[in-house]
Amino acid sequence: MIDFARVQKELQECGKDVEGSGIRVAPKSDATLARLVGTIPGPIGTPYEGGVFQIDITLPDGYPFEPPKMQFSTKVWHPNISSQSGAICLDILKDQWSPALTLKTALLSVQALLSAPEPDDPQDAVVAKQYLKDYQTFISTARYWTETFAKTSSRGIEEKVQKLVEMGFPEAQARTTLESVGGDENLALEKLCSG
């Protein structure tokens, strides 16, 4: 059984320090506290700087004696985060979990992971390979992904997708095309039309 009293307390604690840490945690819906959304700012001095990353949090029944399940819902280019699913490879979210950790401290650790990738223990092999073999490309790709998916301006991407869908393009295709051209609506349309 989830200790909701503790979750409630954690949310309060986290809310007090939003200015300082930039980390927010909020319930996904009013119905339950078991599903939450965490937000972390990209660490300064990294290709993730300036981005705001959203993380889906699901609390297991055994919380806080079991680690919370965390997954990026914002796309990230990082050796330890799946570029496809957003799954995070971080020890404290697995076998190094401790009940003294909180959602906030766990999110802080995720934030720290962004600034200190561990390419030798990768979650995404492609990214890790790029990180080790072609660091410059990795940096630019990561920055590009941040610009495209993690910037507040990119929040409008949903609207652009919606527009393209209304024009008659399938949603998935519209989305990937938009992503591939960096969110430019006209370029995406051009690309989609050219086939």
Binding site: P60, G62, E66, Q96
Partner: peptide, 20 residues
Amino acid sequence: SSPTSGLDVNSALRACPICR
């Protein structure tokens, strides 16, 4: 707590949650 979540008895469960 049951070690189903992959937590090791000796390194994790018996350790202090704060200082390990």
